Simulated assay, not measured.
Amino acid sequence: MSSHMTDHGPVTGKPVSARDGRAWAKVILAGEHAVVHGAPALVLPFPQLSVTATAQLAGSSRTRRDTFSFTMDGSRRPAPGAAEGGNDAMCALASAFRAAVGVAEEHRVVVEIDCTVPPGRGLGSSAACAQAALGAMAQLFRVELTSRLAFGLVQVAEQVTHGRASGVDAMAVATSTPLLFRAGTARELVPRCEGLLIVADSGTTGHTREAVELLARGFASRSGSREAFVREATDLTEAAERAFTGGRIQDLGTNMNSYHVLLRNAGLSTDAIDAMVRAAVAAGSPGAKITGGGMGGCVIALAHAGQAQEVARALASAGAVRTWSTPLGNVELP
């Protein structure tokens, strides 16, 4: 375990009664895939989709494992891939939390997670669930986590879920501020763009691991292709950040369009996603793109004030099963 997970001594006080943790979705405007190679990513919190978690002590002292259950789409069921006692990522998170803050082994927890962030859509569902569960466990054991420690602990779960995780999701699901993320650090941004961001669910699950492997095979087959991809992604993301903070929604949209082309040319989009992107732009959106790992998931689209309904209808006609929207410059936490 990394050295920054030693912010606390052992937990000696009596645990409190059940406590809640909270987190929310994130949306990447630019920077997907290149961010794991050290390039920047422009990311927004998206609190319209959120996660809450409740943690309490297990009722029996004979319980040997922490347990996790999820409510998704209104049905109580174990997390995907869960074994008895919870899925691997959540169990890894709980173990890392215990080691970091000194929770006694006899204190086993039951964590119930209520998630409205659709999984596999590039919106940070796994990181949001981990962040909410961590917050609930921290409150249960009267621990005040530093942001650095919390980030590291959520990353433990993210590495189990995704293999190689950049950290952008782990940081974004706990912030109320747009960020320019790079190499494990983030700079808070002040957005000045007027307008709305629309998130449209294609209804298909993305495939992050497959997308990463596909991109890696492409890099391996063409000398210099990784450097070219990262360089173009960096230029587009930095330009998008300047437009975002400078109030130039058209320029932001242009850079989002170009980033979508970059991902599409790398094989990370789908015909259905491309159709949604074209529909949004045809309806007047300044820019639209796939968001997240790719090969399915969600499309994001910009809209001028008063234009959001038209863009959302176009996305629905092109295949979106549901849409959500948020002001670009005013993140309101639930």
Rank of each mutant, 00 (worst) to 15 (best):
T6R: 15
D7W: 11
T12N: 14
G13M: 12
P15G: 07
P15I: 03
A18D: 12
R19C: 14
G21T: 06
I28W: 03
I28G: 06
A30Y: 06
A41G: 09
L42R: 04
L42I: 08
V43M: 06
P45E: 07
S50T: 12
S50I: 01
T52F: 10
G59I: 06
G59Q: 13
S61V: 15
S61C: 11
T63G: 09
P80G: 08
A82Y: 04
A82H: 03
A83V: 14
A83G: 14
L93S: 09
A94I: 05
S95Y: 09
A99G: 14
A99N: 14
V103I: 15
V103Q: 06
H107Y: 15
V109Q: 11
E112F: 07
E112W: 03
I113D: 02
D114E: 15
D114H: 13
C115D: 10
T116P: 08
V117E: 01
P118A: 07
P119V: 11
G122K: 00
G124F: 00
S126R: 03
A127D: 03
C129G: 11
L134V: 02
G135D: 02
A136R: 02
Q139V: 02
L140R: 10
V143D: 06
V154H: 00
V154R: 00
Q155S: 08
A157P: 05
G163F: 03
R164N: 14
A165H: 00
A170E: 00
P178F: 03
F181A: 03
A183F: 01
A183C: 13
G184I: 05
T185Y: 05
R187I: 11
L189S: 09
P191T: 08
C193Y: 04
E194C: 11
E194N: 13
T204I: 12
T204C: 12
E213D: 15
E213Y: 04
R217P: 05
G218V: 07
S221E: 15
S223L: 12
S223H: 14
A233H: 01
T234V: 08
L236V: 12
A239K: 10
F244R: 02
G246P: 11
G246H: 10
I249E: 02
N257L: 08
Y259T: 11
V261P: 00
L262Q: 07
L262S: 08
D271N: 12
I273F: 07
M276D: 01
A280V: 01
V281H: 00
A282C: 05
S285G: 06
P286E: 01
T291A: 08
G292E: 05
G292Q: 04
C298K: 01
V299G: 05
V299D: 02
H304A: 13
H304V: 00
A305K: 08
A308M: 06
Q309T: 12
A314E: 02
L315G: 00
S317M: 12
S317G: 14
S317C: 11
G319N: 10
T326F: 07
P327D: 13
E332I: 15
L333F: 10
